[in-house]
């Protein structure tokens, strides 16, 4: 099998490729930012003394973690309009990724918080610190450093998952050409071959 690489076509689509890539990377970046913050909220919500909240959040995290991201992306994108909320593919993708990874990050934070020694909590009590200060000034600063490795892994994971956004058309198929080099090339080639052969 032989293909002809057509430079003029490649140049022609380059701006579109770049724009699509930028858009998707931005969605991933913002999605991650959502996940970093929402994950902490989910982790802290599981530590409130109010049991029903703890239970609901725990189950929600389990649910998000055990269902496929690609399905969640579809769900967020298509279900909104049914209730009158129209989301652009970009927004939907961002929300889905943010939600999905916030469940994972909440587990990272949870482990980090649980690893803070009991003595630290007791020292805060002995100094009569409020719950808010205990978390903000003592517990979270100690829980974050050990969480960084896990947070980094999931950042890599998000970038690996961004091609999935193509399923709802955040980037058109051409985006796949850059994020999935080989597969994309095949598609481009297919296009060329078809065009040349008048198919």
């Amino acid at each position: 099998m032989r293909f002809d690489w057509q430079w003029d076509f490649a140049w022609e689509i380059l701006p579109r490729l770049l724009a699509a890539t930028l858009n998707t990377l931005l969605a991933a970046g913002i999605g991650y930012a959502i996940a970093v913050v929402l994950g902490l909220v989910l982790a802290l919500a599981q530590r409130t003394p109010w049991k029903p909240l703890t239970f609901i959040v725990r189950e929600a995290v389990e649910f998000i973690r055990s269902t496929p991201l690609v399905l969640q992306i579809f769900f967020v994108f298509y279900v909104g309009p049914q209730f009158g909320i129209r989301l652009s593919p970009w927004t939907a993708g961002m929300i889905a990724i943010g939600l999905h990874y916030s469940a994972y990050l909440s587990e990272v934070y949870r482990a980090g918080i649980e690893a803070v020694p009991k003595g630290q909590w007791e020292a805060c009590r002995a100094l009569n610190m409020s719950t808010r200060d205990t978390y903000l000034r003592i517990v979270i600063p100690q829980a974050l450093p050990p969480s960084v490795a896990g947070m980094g892994n999931y950042l890599v994971g998000i970038f690996k998952d961004t091609p999935m956004l193509s399923v709802i058309g955040v980037a058109d198929v051409i985006f796949l050409a850059i994020s999935l080099p080989a597969a994309g090339l095949v598609r481009l080639f297919e296009g060329f071959v078809r065009r040349k052969m008048g198919m």
């Binding site: 020694p117 003595g119 630290q120 007791e122 020292a123 009590r125 002995a126 009569n128 409020s130 003592i138 100690q142």
Partner: peptide, 18 residues
């Protein structure tokens, strides 16, 4: 919280904030 403010404690394992 109000009452605790009159009590201080030192622990076996110090529990300083690292």
């Amino acid at each position: 919280r109000k009452m605790r403010s009159s009590i201080g404690m030192c622990f076996q394992h110090f529990n300083l904030f690292p």
